[in-house]
């Protein structure tokens, strides 16, 4: 056997992919040929190094990303979407998944704080029910239910920073086309949260709540969807003829009541993420 022939089969020899006969004739050649033996030794040492490569583990949230894209493909746009507007990327998935995720996260936070009882839950749900039911008829006044129920105090931007430790997004100009008119501090059972009533350029009202933990129970059993607005997971609830939307903003959560459609929601969400540098 000549060297070229042997070297042509060197990988197959090393990887035990040859017939016994071929294997034997190559072994015989290698016995007397330094050049071919060196090639084999080189291949073997490469093998040894490659075997030593680390095996990276998949990150734990890999499935979540896939699931979101799967939802994306099943795209269902809510009926409220106004025609003629530029379509953005958003997704509605059955609420169950989002609810499960939110509820798990919420349960974990609440149980660690241990300040909750079922009465708090029920009364909060009831208060919000009144607030939301009044919203479309009287968006300027509806929040008064919450202000009464939760010891609401009118606050300025400065007081907000002092009492909350942060500037509410709505007072910080982080929401597109939403001029803050009045802001309250609410002592809710879950956390101290801020409520800001904003006026939009078309005269409509937007109510913005900023809170420490997700609050799916604010919306009772209203129909809900998980939505990805410009890449931000957002929970959307239909409240009569407007939407309520909730998403994570840094360490807190923002809930807005009043957007007319998902484009509107997407504007608000993306504007905030832009201001926050991603």
């Amino acid at each position: 056997m000549i060297c070229a022939e042997v070297q042509k089969q060197m990988s197959a020899y090393l990887d035990s992919e040859l017939s016994d006969a071929d294997c034997q004739s190559i072994a015989a050649h290698l016995d007397g040929c330094t050049a071919c033996s060196e090639v084999l030794a080189g291949f073997q040492s490469l093998s040894a190094v490659a075997k030593d490569f680390d095996a990276p583990s998949p990150p734990s949230d890999l499935w979540r990303g896939i699931e979101m894209s799967l939802d994306d493909e099943k795209l269902q746009i809510v009926a409220l979407e106004s025609p003629g507007q530029q379509r953005r990327r958003y997704v509605l998935a059955p609420w169950s998944t989002a609810a499960a995720i939110l509820l798990i996260a919420t349960a974990a936070i609440w149980s660690s704080r241990g300040v909750w009882n079922s009465h708090d839950h029920e009364s909060m749900e009831a208060n919000f029910d009144v607030f939301l039911a009044a919203y479309s008829a009287n968006p300027e006044q509806a929040h008064e239910t919450l202000v009464r129920a939760y010891d609401g105090q009118l606050i300025s931007r400065d007081t907000a920073v002092k009492r909350l430790g942060y500037t509410p997004a709505a007072l910080d100009g982080k929401l597109a086309d939403a001029n803050p008119e009045e802001s309250y501090l609410l002592e809710m059972p879950c956390c101290r949260c801020s409520l800001t009533v904003c006026r939009r350029s078309d005269g409509s009202v937007l109510t913005v709540l900023e809170h420490d933990v997700p609050q799916p129970e604010w919306f009772g059993d209203r129909s809900r969807s998980e939505c990805v607005c410009d890449g931000v997971p957002t929970d959307v609830v239909q409240v009569d003829d407007v939407l309520a939307a909730s998403w994570r903003l840094g360490e807190r959560f923002v809930t807005v009541i009043g957007p007319r459609n998902l484009d509107d929601v997407t504007e608000l969400v993306s504007d905030e993420s832009a201001t926050n540098g991603g």
Binding site: K8, S11, A12, D15, L46
Partner: peptide, 13 residues
């Protein structure tokens, strides 16, 4: 496969 492996191993070496 074998010939590609030969090439791969030689080039890497």
């Amino acid at each position: 496969v074998g010939s590609r492996l030969n090439r791969a191993r030689r080039e890497l070496q």
